[in-house]
Design a protein around this nucleic acid. Structure first.
Lengths: 331, 331
DNA sequence: CTTGCTAAATGAACCGGTTCATTTTACTCT
DNA sequence: AGAGTAAAATGAACCGGTTCATTTAGCAAG
C-alpha cells in the first residue's frame, strides 16, 4: 500500500509538499500540485486516515448515544444529526445503548480515548441522574428535559402538556385520564407536571387513580386502556404521553366497543408518521425531531471548535396538532 | 495528558511491559501488573485509541450505509448489526446516504482510507447497478435481492410474493392489483416477479393497468388507492409492496367509503410494528429485520477476520402473517 | 556453584501521517 | 548584476502506541 513517502518519491518532491497539497493546496505551486496528483493517481494512493487523525489529534467523529435506534423518533433525531455532521466533515458513531448505563459508559470512553471528539445523548437526564456527562467530555443532550445539567436541546414538555389538557378542557372534558411513561422518566415528570398544572388551573383535583403508568410501548398502552374500561367512573378523555401508547389505547377501546372520539377522546405525543395515517387520525404534539438533531449537532460542533455557545438550553418550538381523535364528551 | 511512557516511568517499568499489561496481561508477572494498574490509576491514564488503531492497523469499525435511517425497517436491521458489533468490540459508523450515490462513495472511501474495516450496505443492488462494491473493500449487502454481486443477506422476496398472491387467490380473488415500489428498485423487481409467477400459474393474464407504481412512501400509496377507486373494473384485492403503502391504501379506500376487507382486501410487506396495531390489522410478510442485521454483521466480521464464509447468499426465513385486512371477495 | 532453559522485561525501531525551523527558489527593484 | 524579500520546498522530528530482537531474571537439575 502506497504511503506519502512513495508519492513524494514518485513526484520527485518531499513528503511535506505532498502533505500540503492534500491539506493546504493553496500553499503549493500549481506545477507541483499537478505532479503530486499525477503521482497519487499513478500509485493509487489513499491517505491513511488513522495516521492522519492520530497525528492531528482530531478524530472528526462524534458519538450519538441512543436508548433504542429502532424507535422512529430517535431515528429522526439521528437523521438530523447526520445531516449537520456530514456537512462539516464529521462522522457519526452510532451508540445504541439498549438502555444500559454500562453501554453508555463504554461510549463515553470513546471520547476519553480520543476516538471521538464529543457525544450527543438522546437519553433524557436531570441533575440527580446516575450517569452524568464527565468533565472534559464534550456533551450535548438532545430531546432532554427541564434541569438538564449540560448543553441541551428540547421542546417545552410542560407547556405542551398544558396545551393538550387545555384543549381537552375546552372541549368540555372534566375527567381526563393519563397513560404516562415510567414514573421516574424525565419526560414523564415534565409532562405530568404540565397535566397537574393545567387541571389545577381549571379547578380540578388531581386523582392518581386515573393516571396509569405505562412504559412508552404499545402493550402498556393496550393494558392501560383495558384498565380504564373496567372503571365505573371512566374518564371521557385520555392524554397519552406518546403516540405509540395512544394508538394502542385507540385499539384497546375500539375492541371494547368504545368509539374514538365519540365515546372517548385520545391524545398522543411525538407525532409519528403513522399518527396521521391511522383511523381516526391522532391529535398530538409534534416534536421537531430532525431539527432537534440538527441543533444538537451544531451545538456540539461549536463546542468542539471551542466556541462557547451563548445559550445552554435550546428550546425549540413544538406544534400542537388537532386531528380526529378528540371531540366533545357525550353527556 | 498522560502517555504510556509516563505510566512506564511511574511504575518503574518499560513501555513494552505497560503495553503488554493492557493487551496480553497473561504474559506479565502479577507483581508488575499491579504496579502498572496503580500507575494508570494514579495518572488517570487513558490510552489514545487513535494511536493504537493506527499502529495496529485495525480500526475495529464497520460502516453501515443506509438509504434513510428514519425508516423503521432499516433502523431495526441496524439494531441487529449493533448487537453483534458491540459483542465483538466493533464500532458502527452510521452512513445515512439519503439515497445519494455520491454519499455512498464517501462512505466507501472510509474503508479505503482505513477508517473502517468493512461496509454493510442496506441499499439493494444487482450486478447492473451504477455503484458496486470495489475490490479490496469488504462488503456485505443486507436486505438485498436476487443476483446481488457480493456477500448478501435477504429473504426470498419472489417466494414471499408468490405466497401472498396464492393466499389471495385461495380466498377467491381473481383480479389482484399491485401497488409496487419504483420500477427499477430491486425489491420491486423481485416481488413483481413473484406476482407474475403466481398469477400465471393460476391461469390469469398479466394486466399492467392494475399494477400502479408507488415509491414505498405513504403518499404514493394513497394516490394509488385513489386511482384504483376510479377504475370501472376495480380489483378485489391489492398487494402492496410495503406496509406503509398498504396502510395508506386502507386509509384511501376507507375515505372513499370502501371497507377493508369486506369490499377490498389489502396486503403489505415488511410487518412494521404498527401493522398489527392499525384497524384493520394488516396481512403482510414479516421480514426478520434484526436477524438480517445480525447475520450481516457476523458475515462481515468473518470476512474481516479472513475467514471465508461458505455461502455467499444468506436467505433467511420470512413469515407470512394473515390478519384482518384480507377476506374473500364480495360477489 | 555452574549450567541450561524458560519466562519476563527491555527499549529502540516502527507505523504514516503532520509540522515547522531552515534552506532554496523565484522574482522585484535598484 | 546584485541585494532584498516573499513564496515554496525541504526533511528531520514528532505523535503515542505496538512489536520484536535481545537481555535479564528466576528456577531446576546436575
Amino acid at each position: 500500500m502506497a504511503t506519502i513517502r512513495d508519492v513524494a518519491q514518485e513526484a520527485g518532491l518531499s513528503t511535506g509538499t505532498v502533505s500540503k497539497v492534500l491539506s493546504h493546496p493553496e500553499k503549493v505551486s500549481k506545477k507541483n500540485q499537478i505532479k503530486v496528483h499525477e503521482a497519487i493517481a499513478k500509485l493509487n494512493y489513499k491517505p491513511n486516515m488513522l495516521a492522519q487523525k492520530f497525528r492531528s489529534k482530531r478524530s472528526n467523529t462524534i458519538v450519538v448515544m441512543v436508548p433504542d435506534i429502532a424507535n422512529l423518533f430517535f431515528a429522526k433525531v439521528i437523521s438530523g444529526i447526520e445531516t449537520v455532521a456530514q456537512a462539516s466533515g464529521f462522522s457519526v458513531l452510532l451508540g445504541d445503548t439498549k438502555d444500559s448505563l454500562a453501554q453508555e459508559k463504554e461510549f463515553i470512553k470513546m471520547v476519553e480515548t480520543r476516538l471521538a471528539d464529543g457525544v450527543i445523548n438522546l437519553r433524557p437526564y436531570r441533575k440527580s441522574d446516575a450517569l452524568l456527562p464527565k468533565d472534559g467530555v464534550l456533551s450535548v443532550a438532545a430531546s432532554s428535559c427541564e434541569n438538564t445539567p449540560s448543553y441541551s436541546v428540547r421542546i417545552d414538555n410542560v407547556g405542551a402538556s398544558v396545551k393538550v389538557i387545555n384543549h381537552l378542557l375546552s372541549l368540555g372534558h372534566k375527567r381526563i385520564g393519563v397513560i404516562s411513561g415510567l414514573k421516574n422518566n424525565p419526560h414523564t415528570i415534565d409532562r405530568l407536571k404540565g397535566y397537574k398544572q393545567a387541571i389545577a388551573e381549571a379547578g380540578i383535583d388531581y386523582d392518581p387513580s386515573i393516571v396509569i403508568e405505562g412504559d412508552f410501548n404499545y402493550w402498556s398502552g393496550l393494558s392501560a386502556a383495558e384498565q380504564f374500561c373496567k372503571m365505573t367512573d371512566r374518564p371521557t378523555a385520555i392524554c397519552c404521553f406518546n403516540d405509540e401508547m395512544a394508538i394502542a389505547a385507540i385499539k384497546g377501546f375500539s375492541e371494547k366497543g368504545l368509539k374514538v372520539p365519540q365515546d372517548i377522546s385520545i391524545t398522543g405525543f411525538d407525532d409519528m408518521d403513522v399518527s396521521k395515517y391511522i383511523i381516526p387520525t391522532l391529535t398530538t404534539v409534534a416534536q421537531p425531531a430532525e431539527k432537534m438533531g440538527e441543533r444538537s449537532a451544531e451545538l456540539l460542533l461549536a463546542l468542539i471548535n471551542e466556541d462557547t455557545p451563548s445559550a445552554t438550553e435550546h428550546i425549540l418550538p413544538y406544534e400542537f396538532v388537532i386531528r380526529e381523535s378528540t371531540a366533545p364528551p357525550r353527556h
